[in-house]
């Protein structure tokens, strides 16, 4: 479903701030893979996700989604393949617009926008049903402004928006990191539900080793702009945090990140 080959990206080349964020990255996700991604700060996790999403173009290497080479495709155009949820709850939704309007914009991702009514009546009924499945009491607030929702509610709505039009690949960039533990757990639960129901191919960045082990069928660890550990199947299921830490210490020459150990 996703095939990244020899991807490289250097920020601020030729200056003192030069930083190679991706260093010949290779990754191949099969259809239906739910991969969690861990790694220290600056390992290249978000950079990888942004490269897939097309926020900027890589220096070299290619990205293929479902057999289509998207490396040179602008961000808005490859959006039709992708569903994205960001770390910052403010980023995924338009605050001054209604929940229904946000959903309607997302539902038309990848189609040509026309001069016709933007939110149809039957859509509202569908949105209401979908919002009810979140169990956050949002089904009665279809006409409410998104800006009035809490961070957790906004992330849940963003998740719904990302998957309304079934994406070939779902990109979750630490989408629970800015939430309190209880809300984070709820949003993760919703994530699992949606991913399993729609059998979505998913890449989920997390800073939490427990989460990384508990979710998905594959675990990827990044360091220094490439993938250093890639486990799946039973091996991944039986992983313990201790083993994971050992793996990480080996792979990164001891540069363990505090945030990962603590969580």
């Amino acid at each position: 479903m996703l095939k990244i080959t020899n991807l490289q990206k250097t920020f601020n080349p030729g200056t003192v701030n030069e930083k190679t964020a991706l260093y010949g990255l290779d990754l191949h996700l099969k259809d239906g893979d739910f991969a969690t991604v861990i790694g220290g700060n600056g390992a290249g996790k978000s950079t990888m996700l942004n490269a897939i999403a097309g926020v900027w173009k890589p220096d070299f290497g290619t990205i293929e989604i479902d057999g289509v080479d998207v490396t040179q495709m602008p961000e808005y155009r490859r959006a039709k393949f992708l569903g994205r949820v960001f770390q910052d709850p403010m980023q995924g939704t338009a605050p001054d617009m209604e929940i229904a309007e946000n959903l309607a914009i997302a539902a038309r991702r990848g189609t040509k926008r026309r001069f016709v009514w933007g939110v149809r009546k039957e859509e509202r009924i569908r949105y209401r049903e979908l919002l009810a499945t979140l169990e956050l009491g949002l089904e009665d607030r279809l006409s409410g402004k998104v800006g009035l929702l809490s961070g957790g509610q906004r992330q849940a709505v963003t998740l719904l928006m990302a998957t309304l039009h079934r994406p070939k690949l779902l990109l979750l960039d630490e989408h629970t990191a800015a939430l309190d533990p209880k809300t984070a757990a709820k949003v993760l639960e919703i994530t699992d539900q949606i991913v399993h129901k729609n059998k979505l191919t998913t890449l989920m960045i997390t800073h939490n080793m427990k989460e990384a082990i508990a979710h998905g069928n594959r675990l990827i660890m990044m360091h220094g702009g490439r993938i250093v550990v890639d486990v799946s199947g039973d091996e991944k299921k039986n992983l313990t945090i201790e083993q994971l830490l050992n793996l990480f210490t080996q792979a990164s020459d001891g540069a363990v990140d505090d945030r990962m150990v603590l969580s």
Binding site: A53, E75, Y76, R77, A79, K80, L82, R84, F86, M90, Q91, G92, T93, A94, P95, N102, I105, A106, R108, R109, G110, M161
Partner: peptide, 9 residues
């Protein structure tokens, strides 16, 4: 929200 807009195509 231009960010959200781009992400929604």
């Amino acid at each position: 929200n231009p960010h959200m807009s781009r992400a929604q195509g």
